[in-house]
Design a protein around this nucleic acid. Sequence first.
DNA 1: ACAAAAATTGTCGACGTTGTCATTGCCTTG
DNA 2: CAAGGCAATGACAACGTCGACAATTTTTGT
Lengths: 339, 339
Amino acid sequence: MVSIVSVAKAAGVSNKTVSRVINGEPHVTEDTRERVEKAIRDLGYIPNMAARQIRSSRSNTFGIITDYVSTTPYSVDIVRGIQDWANTHGKSILMANSGGLPEREADIWKMFQSHRIDGVLYVTMYHRVVDPEAGDVNIPTVMINCRPQTSELLPSIEPDDFQGARDLTQYLLERGHRRIGYVRLNPILLGAELRLDAFRRTAKEFGLAESDLSIRLGMEGPVGVEENYVFAAASEILQQKDRPTAIMSGNDEMAIQIYIAALTLGLRIPQDVSIVGFDDFRTVSLALKPELTTAALPYYDLGFQGAEWLNSIISEEMVRANRRVISCKLVERASVCAL
Amino acid sequence: MVSIVSVAKAAGVSNKTVSRVINGEPHVTEDTRERVEKAIRDLGYIPNMAARQIRSSRSNTFGIITDYVSTTPYSVDIVRGIQDWANTHGKSILMANSGGLPEREADIWKMFQSHRIDGVLYVTMYHRVVDPEAGDVNIPTVMINCRPQTSELLPSIEPDDFQGARDLTQYLLERGHRRIGYVRLNPILLGAELRLDAFRRTAKEFGLAESDLSIRLGMEGPVGVEENYVFAAASEILQQKDRPTAIMSGNDEMAIQIYIAALTLGLRIPQDVSIVGFDDFRTVSLALKPELTTAALPYYDLGFQGAEWLNSIISEEMVRANRRVISCKLVERASVCAL
DNA sequence: ACAAAAATTGTCGACGTTGTCATTGCCTTG
DNA sequence: CAAGGCAATGACAACGTCGACAATTTTTGT
């Protein structure tokens, strides 16, 4: 392998001078610099990160731990956000997936340490509370899309489920809807309570009574093997004598079944019933016809800003543990009509 | 940081002996081994990969290059498959995303080289032909979910779209369907042609005429901003006077619109019209009611076997470039009825 | 023109690990 | 009991890079 030494020999300078050129340090004549750069190009020299790391005890690498990946596929945008930040700032990404198994997670932390990772991004694929195996380890960590259970020691960055659901509810209310159905997310998801709470409060603020709201559970049980009542719940809501004019869905995926339930009952969307989702899971929200009005989870930004935050923690050595929240932007499409 | 030297000092042996213990080499007394292991535990020593790599010029790390990530979110299972193989075989994964930009891809290759990666897995998020920027670089590479355009130099591993579509078509034919609609995938996807071809051939084998098949284009245009005719195409197919009794969808996502089109026309699924998808994109195929019969893309296995293959290429130094194909398993659910 | 200051370049060692080879001590064999 | 063999352990160098410092050359000030 071609090393700094071979370059130095080729350019007729010392290896230290080559090092200076590579790192853009001052105190190199333009002439020398060019000669070295030519040698680098000719030999196809590429710096060896491992050697650099050994010298500087900085790896310029972040680790990503994810839990499940497949249950909410769209949240891979978190990872894309992280990568984009990392790429544009000369950091590398070492990635591992725990599958939700604690022992695997412990192995991953060990692997990260053996690579002398600068920091860790702990990413969950749905918004939830976790208890990371990190505790004993002293690597800067930012939690993304989740928050630590026990300690307030770790900084976390999360979507603002409450604001998103508030905006959606308000959107419906402003368009004249006064009887609204709600199909709840699986209660084990952190978003479930936040969204429902925002829905209830906002409806109340606008003067609706609890009896104007038809709230039903859509799913429950462990993620991946949950029981699914959405179709039945939606059918039931829509067959009430004082049928709601709009239904809020816990998320976009569940909205598929609400669409099917409505259509099966011969109802037109949005003329007979308006529907809104949550997440802006575009594979679904754009495939539904009419296209679904929803609130977009800021996955990409969670990742991007999480990486940025981690970096500032690492370089400034300050670990002000706290929580950041990113808003969910309302995406207006065609599934709601004004009354 | 605690190094091999501190462990050696603590255990009262030379650093070489510690090295032997770590790597499970012979010629160490049980007594010594235990003393060293105790010291390792006490000090919390973890081997430094960078130093190891510098010595051995082997990084035990694979690189993953992905193109787009968000368009077909479920294909992250490829990455999960790779990770699972890597984790259980003591390899690490360095990951980067090109976003489809060639200059970014070139940077990534450089980054990989600077980490002295052992091999690269080139992963695309939908099945297609690519022309990787790798050419000049001499790192063992396996292409996953895609195949090289120009050269036959790189080994590739792909899903068997043809077999999957054949099995699905056969499944419908065996259940008595003789007029079948087909909504085509975007033609720029490699699967589009393979699946359509399998559909046509299998139908012909069973004695159907071309006039028994209603084939319509569902989407076209660049991935991510394609134009979407699925709803219109499905509506049109289902309003013909000799309406097909079954529709094959280019993929599961498009099946959403076919469901909506059918229901909007007052047709029951599957009594009036049977529907099959492709991909087994479970967020969709399980959310549809009735649940969708489809063919599962073997994403996880593509990743897992791809990693395994890459490893064997690296260790055996043999680069028999060729192509492997993994079959798509038919998943029988409730969206098809026998006539 | 000469000293002082600044710019340029080089020498050397250390980071943590392991391969090579050397050393020590014990055991087998005749 | 000597010679040879083998097991256990250690000393040392080298991998590629860069920081500390030294050496050399050029520029500046008077």
